[in-house]
């Protein structure tokens, strides 16, 4: 019994120590574990001129413009507090549209425009049939989820 108890104490204290260690490592690595920055994050962070980063947020309503050849898009990414101008040339995912969450990889130019080399769509956690989405919008019960950026902070 006492040997069993000793082993139990050993295993439990080992696990606790391990959990604490993991917590410390993860909080130290915070910077690297973040897949993207929000536009507000960028205001407080200093980023090298050619440093490749990812930014994420919602495509601001009525900010999307396409070049005449249709290949280049300009839009603003917002976290509903600040927004950032983005320029991108290339194929966009099907889900890309105004109001959609996206993640773009690229670098911040000197003129403050983010030049993206890749744009990914971020899907939210809501799943519903199109008819239901239409009905919700029609009845005014449509809730735009607040972007994760504001929750996470």
């Amino acid at each position: 019994m006492t040997r069993k108890r000793r082993r139990l104490v050993f295993v439990l204290s080992g696990l606790t120590a391990l959990g604490l260690a993991a917590l410390l490592i993860l909080s130290a690595l915070e910077e690297n574990l973040v897949f993207f920055y929000s536009p507000s994050d960028l205001q407080t962070k200093t980023i090298g001129a050619e440093e490749r980063i990812r930014i994420g947020g919602l495509v601001e309503e009525e900010s999307l413009t396409r070049s005449s050849d249709g290949l280049e898009v300009n839009f603003r990414v917002t976290d509903l507090r600040t927004s950032l101008a983005v320029r991108y040339r290339g194929l966009l995912p099907d889900l890309f549209r105004e109001g959609q969450g996206i993640v773009a990889e690229g670098h911040l130019q000197a003129d403050g425009v983010f030049l993206a080399s890749e744009v990914l769509a971020k899907h939210d956690e809501t799943y519903m049939p199109p008819e239901v989405a239409r009905a919700l919008k029609k009845s005014g019960h449509w809730q735009e989820d607040p972007p994760e950026e504001s929750e996470a902070e």
Binding site: F35, S38, Y127, M128
Partner: peptide
């Protein structure tokens, strides 16, 4: 905890699932 590309949980969450019952 972190900004990820993957979306948060839809089924097991405090305010109930955000998945329509047909799914």
């Amino acid at each position: 905890w972190w900004h990820t590309l993957h979306q948060p949980a839809s089924v097991i969450r405090l305010d109930g699932p955000s998945i329509h019952v047909s799914m």
